[in-house]
Write a protein that binds this DNA or RNA. Structure first.
Lengths: 236, 236
DNA sequence: GCCAAAATTCAACACGCGATGAAAATCGCC
DNA sequence: GGCGATTTTCATCGCGTGTTGAATTTTGGC
C-alpha cells in the first residue's frame, strides 16, 4: 500500500484492510471500457474491478449490483449526451435544418468517440442476455435524445426545410441508428477492406451518410415519385 | 421413452440410453431461437437442449462446441438468404433499380421475419463477448450479400438510376443496416409508443425508410447541393 | 477517548456453464 | 451371433461469475 503522503487522493482517506482509495468515478470508467468491449452479458465484475484497481466487493458497495453499475453508467453517458445535445439544439435555433443537424451529428460523433467506443458499444447492448431489461433501460434514456432530434425535424418541417410527408416519430431513428453503426463498423471494414486509412474512411462515410439522408440515392433528374401517402403523425 | 411405433421419426432409430431421436435440424431450430433471444454470450447449451428435447451432450456430438453450432447456424441462415437474394437479383436484371431494391427489401424482410427474429438477432451478435470472433464470422457471411446489393447499385449507377457520386462500397450497408434495425426496433417502439398496430407501424416504417433512402429528407424544391466531392471508388 | 459509521479488502458461497467420458441401446456388416 | 460403429443419455468435472459477510482501518460526532 502506498504511504498516505504519496497518494494523490482526494478526501476521505481509504479505509479497510490494506485499503487503496478508489473513487466511484474510476470504477465507472473501468466499467465503461469493459461493457463496451465485451457487452453486458460478457462483461464481468472482476474485470471491471481489475481495471479500476479495487476489489469486486467495492463495486457492490457503491452500485449495489452488476445491473446497478450498468444503469449508473447509462444515466451518466446518456445524461451527458442529452445535455450537450439540448445545448446545441438551443444554440442553433433559427439556423437551417441541415446545418443544425450537421452540428448535431458532429456532437454525437464526438461524444461517441471520446468515450472510447463506450456508448456505442452499450447502445447496442440490446442484444445481450437479459436484453429485454437492457433494451428498456436504453430505450428510456434514448427517448429524450430522439425527442430533441424530433424537435429539430419538426421545426424544419414547419420551415419547409424537411419533407413534411416523412413520419416524424421515426425520422430521428432513421438518422441516428445508421450513424451509431457507422462509427462502429466503418473503421473495422475499412481497416480490412479499403485503401482508405480508417479516419478518412470514417469521415467519408459520415459525409456520405449525411448527404444520403438529405438527398437520397436517386439522381436529381430522376427523382422518384413520393412513395409515401400522407400520414397522420402518430403521437410519439 | 415413447414406443418406437408411436415415434414420428425418420430413420435411423434412436440409440443410447432411453434414447429419443432428435435430428440435428431440430437442434438448429432451437439454437436459432435461443441465440436470437439471448445473444451468443447469454445463450447456453442447456437451454438449446431443452428446446430441442435432448441432452446437451448431443449438441457436442453433432456440432463439436458452442461455437460450432453457432457457425453452423450462420452458414445455414446466411447461405439461404444469399441464395434467395442471388435469385432475386438475377430475376430482376434489367428492371429499374428501385424496383429491384424493393424486391430485395421484400425478400430480406420476409427472410428475417420467417425466422422468428433469428437472423436479425444473430446479425447483431457482434456485441457479444468474444465479439471479435463473432464479428468476423458474421462479416464473412455478410460479404457476399453486400456484394450482391453492391452489384445492383453498380448497375443502377451505370444506368443513371443511382447517383454515381455515392460511395459504392458502403452504400449497401447504408441500405441494409437500418432495415435490419427497423425490423427489430419499430415493432417494439410501436407496441409501447404508437397508436399504430405493430404490423402497420412496421409496414409504414419500411416504406418510409425505402422512400427516404431514395429521395432524402429534403423537400424536392430545396434539394441540397451535393455534399460529396467526387470520390474514387475504393476497391471493396 | 469511545463508538458508530463509512469504506475498503479478504475469503468464501452457490450456482451456472462449457465440456467430456462412460454407459447403454441400436444398427449393419461379416 | 459377434462385433464395431453410431448415437443417445447420464453423471460429472473444472472453472468462472455474481454476490455476500466478516475483518480491518479510518473518520467524525459526542
Amino acid at each position: 500500500m502506498l504511504k498516505k503522503s504519496l497518494e494523490p487522493l482526494p478526501t476521505p482517506s481509504p479505509r479497510g484492510r490494506k485499503a487503496i482509495k478508489v473513487e466511484p468515478r474510476i470504477i465507472l470508467d473501468a466499467a465503461l471500457k469493459v461493457f463496451a468491449e465485451q457487452g453486458v452479458a460478457g462483461a464481468n465484475l472482476r474485470a471491471i474491478a481489475r481495471g479500476a484497481g479495487c476489489d469486486p466487493a467495492l463495486i457492490y458497495y457503491h452500485f449495489g449490483s452488476k445491473e446497478g453499475i450498468f444503469e449508473a453508467l447509462l444515466d451518466e453517458l446518456f445524461g451527458e449526451l442529452q445535455r450537450e445535445l439540448a445545448k446545441v439544439v438551443g444554440e442553433t435555433t433559427g439556423q437551417p435544418t441541415q446545418e443544425r443537424m450537421r452540428q448535431v451529428m458532429d456532437l454525437i460523433v464526438r461524444q461517441l468517440r471520446t468515450r472510447g467506443r463506450g456508448l456505442q458499444g452499450i447502445a447496442r447492448g440490446e442484444v445481450v442476455a437479459g436484453a429485454e431489461g437492457t433494451r428498456i433501460s436504453i430505450a428510456k434514456r434514448l427517448r429524450p435524445i430522439l425527442d430533441l432530434l424530433r424537435q429539430v425535424f419538426a421545426e424544419g418541417m414547419a420551415k419547409g426545410e424537411v419533407r413534411a410527408d416523412l413520419p416524424l416519430p421515426i425520422l430521428p431513428f432513421f438518422f441516428l441508428r445508421p450513424l451509431v453503426e457507422i462509427l462502429e463498423l466503418i473503421p473495422v471494414m475499412s481497416a480490412h477492406l479499403s485503401d482508405f486509412p480508417p479516419e478518412e474512411a470514417l469521415a467519408m462515410a459520415l459525409t456520405a451518410w449525411f448527404d444520403l439522408f438529405w438527398n437520397g440515392a436517386s439522381p436529381s433528374q430522376e427523382r422518384g415519385d413520393r412513395l409515401l401517402p400522407a400520414v397522420a403523425k402518430s403521437p410519439l
